[in-house]
Design a protein around this nucleic acid. Structure first.
Lengths: 241, 241
DNA sequence: ATTCACGTAGATGTATACAATTCAAGTCTG
DNA sequence: CAGACTTGAATTGTATACATCTACGTGAAT
């Protein structure tokens, strides 16, 4: 989806008004497919329909990002609790176990020597396995949907933490939570699993808040960050001459 | 949305394959607007894209309906907890208070004499007020979305319970939960509020299960029930000659 | 007889022309 | 001068024609 990328890359900024004909010219495509894309992005929440016509790029606040992360924790927690209560599927559980083991090896190197891209990969694998534990198609669908929200994904802003030692240390804590979550699910400890998952997401949330507060320059390098940044002077540019 | 109603009314049944040209003829509209409707319904979860082309009407199980109700409880519970923790907005709280008072008067008549349609109305008002307590736009959006799922809405299958005395009695319990939820929010008791909201939804879920088990004939009268019913002999009828 | 290639039918994807709606501004009338 | 109606431009909604893709069947060649 071309438009989505352009929005994420900051080519269209929050508050920009998007009109079908204008954007279709700018993107070199016809209105018909564009309309579908616009409707789709509106469903995703990246755009909002305006009554007078046209769409506006939605402006996200830092609070929105935090809420999205918490919501992910809520849903992941529910998946984990229900898996623990009902007895998890063995295949999904095996995937989670192997993710935890892989992460163990990565984290075993210590905060300084840690292979960051490997961590990111296996962390994504862990959360994918967790989502795979969902017995409910409804729940699985909603979780998948929330993961598409900006910054809600487990590895959304991980890369920004790559070169900051204090953040690398939080990965050790995070891995401990991975282990405990797996254990709780295997033991059938539903409530414990739910709260670990919530707290796990909460740590991600805290990290994001810290990054924004302490190192705004780092935050601005994140993909999709332009959706959050306050207006910094540039006005609407819809790429039409 | 014409197609949506037709699906809900059972004119298109779960498993039916929908092709654009065919449906556009049947509905007397062009493909262009139809495509948008189809995409929209797919987003809602009523339809599923098939790889080979076309959509199928999604088949919901009773379990799906129960999951949707639980998910509503989960989100409502989160809204309630956060409202309690952060201090609720006075205007939304006032709306909730007046809904509870109105329900008090309705329920005060006792299970036998209870004005059912009034209860339904004020119950909807209560849950709307609860949704209005959401401080987070993300959370509010997801809750609104879940409410659109079949049977997830608080008043979705209330009417089926109208003439069964044992169900009317559950409304008294439900109203007690309304009172307690309001109290918990006002007192800042977040966790209590969260669990009351979850349990409140759980009762709705239990009622639905009971209806289906004990009185299937009643269940079949519910709007949208055809999405759940198992195949009862009729084959696909896409309204083309 | 089996397999590969090609054609065709049926489906979705795209472009464009036209209709309908809506907002605003200007003018005409009471 | 105020208010309402008209007119026009801009935007979205709809229809239709055309392009593209894919799956399946038929044909010939090995």
């Amino acid at each position: 989806m071309l438009l989505r990328d352009r929005i994420m890359r900051g080519q269209f900024r929050p508050g920009d008004r998007l009109y079908e004909v204008e954007v279709s010219k700018a993107l070199g495509m016809s209105r018909t497919p564009l309309r579908q894309v616009l409707a789709s992005l509106a469903h995703e929440g990246l755009l909002e329909r305006r009554s007078g016509g046209g769409f506006v790029v939605r402006k996200f606040t830092l609070e929105d990002a935090c809420d999205a992360i918490e919501l992910r924790g809520l849903l992941e927690g529910t998946v984990a609790r229900r898996a623990a209560e009902q007895g998890p599927a063995e295949t999904a559980l095996a995937a989670m176990r192997s993710a935890v083991e892989a992460l163990d090896r990565v984290v075993g190197a210590g905060a300084e020597a840690l292979d960051f891209s490997a961590y990111t990969e296996f962390n994504a694998g862990f959360h994918k396995a967790l989502a795979g534990l969902a017995t409910s198609s409804i729940l699985a669908g909603e979780l998948a949907r929330v993961l598409k929200l900006p910054f809600a994904s487990p590895s959304a802003f991980l890369q920004a933490q790559a070169n900051v030692l204090s953040f690398r240390r939080t990965l050790i804590t995070a891995q401990s939570q991975h282990q405990q979550l797996l254990e709780a699910i295997q033991r059938g400890e539903g409530m414990r699993a739910e709260f670990i998952a919530r707290e796990h997401a909460h740590q991600a949330r805290a990290n994001l808040e810290t990054i924004v507060r302490e190192d705004p320059g780092l935050a601005e390098s994140l993909p999709g960050w332009t959706l959050f940044a306050r207006n910094n002077g540039r006005d609407a540019a819809t790429a039409s001459p």
